[in-house]
Every structure is written in C-alpha cells, then in structure tokens.
C-alpha cells in the first residue's frame, strides 16, 4: 500500500493506494479528481512547471511562464533547460504561447503575467 497527499486542490486529502489484481484501488479521496490523480501518480507522475524566462524588454528582467500541460516529473529539469532557452523579445498578452512543442512533446510555453 502507498500513501500520498492529493495535490489537486487545497483540501489535500490523504490517499491510500493499494495494488489489486483488478488494478489500483484508491481510498481517502473526497472527489473523483483525487482518484485520477492517484492513478496517474502510480503510473506516470506529472506536474505543471512554472518558472521565469529572460526578456529583452527594458525594465523587465524576467517574465513568469508555465507549461500548457503537465510534464513528466522525472523530466522536469530537461523542461527547465528547454524553457530557459526561450527569451521574450517583446511585450505580449498574458496567456500568449511563447514556444511550442517543448522537448519534442506537445507541451507549449505560456506567458502567465501581464507586462507593464
């Protein structure tokens, strides 16, 4: 049996996962999102990655970004490297896609702040 904390919402339910012949059995989740999280976590843990990138905009040294989807936890540092290669050349709207297909996946890079 494995214990984990659901990170999907702030409730942070304690989940117990047991491997049965029929597959994984999840206990402790207050909602189905928790079950889904646990199953994903057992097979292929993933996280959304947020960080910053450099910009060429005067007076703005860094801009906040995130991945458009969750990326494999084990590859998080490869994604960091790929993201840090991106430089924001000019002001864009919050939510703009700044790069596509990070690390050869279908994950994009999204600008997450309003630039002033």
């Amino acid at each position: 049996m494995k214990n984990m904390t659901c990170i999907v919402c702030p409730k942070g339910c304690s989940l117990q996962i047991e491997e049965k012949e029929s597959g994984f059995e999840v206990r402790g989740a207050l909602c189905p999102r928790g079950e889904r999280y646990a199953l994903q976590e057992m097979t292929d843990p993933r996280r959304t990655l947020q960080t910053t990138i450099r910009t060429a905009i005067p007076g703005c040294r860094r801009a906040a970004v995130r991945t458009s989807k969750e990326v494999p936890l084990g590859e998080i540092f490869s994604y960091m490297d790929a993201i840090k290669g991106v430089i924001l050349e000019e002001k864009k709207e919050c939510g703009s896609v700044l790069a596509r297909g990070l690390c050869g996946s279908d994950v994009d890079l999204i600008l997450t702040e309003r630039l002033y």
């Binding site: 906040a64 919050c94 997450t112 702040e113």
Partner: peptide
Amino acid sequence: KLTGPEYADRYV
C-alpha cells in the same frame, strides 16, 4: 489552477 499573476491579471 491559476498562477498568482494569472489570478491578478483576471482582476485587473
């Protein structure tokens, strides 16, 4: 699941 600046942007 928004980031802080995204949440702020919505209000702004």
